[in-house]
Deep mutational scan, measured.
Amino acid sequence: LQLFIKTLTGKTFTVEMEPSDTIENLKAKIQDKEGIPPDQQRLIFAGKQLEDGRTLSDYNIQKESTLHLVL
C-alpha cells in the first residue's frame, strides 16, 4: 500500500509498504529514501505516536493514508 509521509517543513514523499510491515520497517524505508536515522523519527497517525513493534494494520493504516514525520 502506498503511504504519504508529510514532514513539518511541508515536504511530502511516498513509500510503498505492506499492511503486515512494522513501524520499524517503515522507519527503515524512510531512512533509505530520506537518510533520516530511525531513532530520530517520530511518526504520528490520527493523533497517535506509532510504536516500532506494531504493524501498520494494528493502527488501521490504509492505502494512501498520510503519516506525519516529526524529527
Score class of each variant (00 low, 15 high):
residue 28 A to L: 14
residue 1 L to C: 03
residue 55 T to V: 13
residue 15 V to Q: 02
residue 52 D to T: 07
residue 18 E to T: 14
residue 23 I to Q: 01
residue 45 F to A: 03
residue 24 E to A: 15
residue 20 S to D: 10
residue 29 K to C: 04
residue 29 K to V: 13
residue 60 N to D: 12
residue 4 F to D: 04
residue 21 D to G: 10
residue 30 I to R: 00
residue 44 I to K: 05
residue 23 I to P: 02
residue 57 S to T: 15
residue 13 F to P: 00
residue 45 F to E: 01
residue 43 L to M: 03
residue 46 A to M: 14
residue 33 K to H: 15
residue 69 L to Y: 02
residue 6 K to Q: 13
residue 17 M to W: 09
residue 1 L to A: 05
residue 48 K to P: 01
residue 22 T to S: 09
residue 28 A to Q: 15
residue 14 T to R: 08
residue 15 V to H: 01
residue 30 I to H: 00
residue 3 L to H: 01
residue 1 L to F: 10
residue 50 L to I: 05
residue 3 L to F: 07
residue 20 S to Y: 13
residue 16 E to S: 08
residue 43 L to F: 05
residue 69 L to D: 00
residue 35 G to W: 04
residue 51 E to P: 02
residue 54 R to F: 14
residue 31 Q to K: 11
residue 70 V to N: 06
residue 48 K to H: 15
residue 53 G to S: 13
residue 26 L to N: 00
residue 49 Q to K: 09
residue 23 I to L: 05
residue 63 K to Q: 12
residue 51 E to C: 04
residue 63 K to P: 14
residue 16 E to K: 08
residue 49 Q to Y: 13
residue 20 S to L: 13
residue 38 P to G: 07
residue 52 D to H: 07
residue 65 S to P: 04
residue 43 L to T: 01
residue 63 K to S: 15
residue 32 D to A: 13
residue 57 S to G: 11
residue 13 F to C: 02
residue 21 D to Y: 03
residue 67 L to T: 02
residue 42 R to Q: 11
residue 42 R to P: 01
residue 6 K to I: 13
residue 22 T to L: 13
residue 19 P to D: 13
residue 62 Q to W: 09
residue 59 Y to W: 02
residue 35 G to D: 06
residue 41 Q to V: 07
residue 11 K to N: 10
residue 4 F to N: 14
residue 29 K to M: 14
residue 58 D to S: 13
residue 35 G to Q: 06
residue 67 L to E: 02
residue 20 S to Q: 09
residue 10 G to I: 03
residue 23 I to F: 02
residue 11 K to E: 09
residue 35 G to I: 02
residue 38 P to I: 15
residue 34 E to M: 15
residue 46 A to P: 01
residue 42 R to D: 05
residue 58 D to R: 02
residue 40 Q to G: 06
residue 64 E to I: 06
residue 56 L to W: 02
residue 34 E to S: 09
residue 17 M to L: 13
residue 10 G to C: 03
residue 35 G to V: 02
residue 68 H to T: 10
residue 27 K to F: 02
residue 18 E to Y: 14
residue 30 I to A: 01
residue 56 L to P: 03
residue 65 S to C: 03
residue 63 K to E: 11
residue 57 S to D: 15
residue 37 P to W: 05
residue 39 D to W: 10
residue 9 T to E: 07
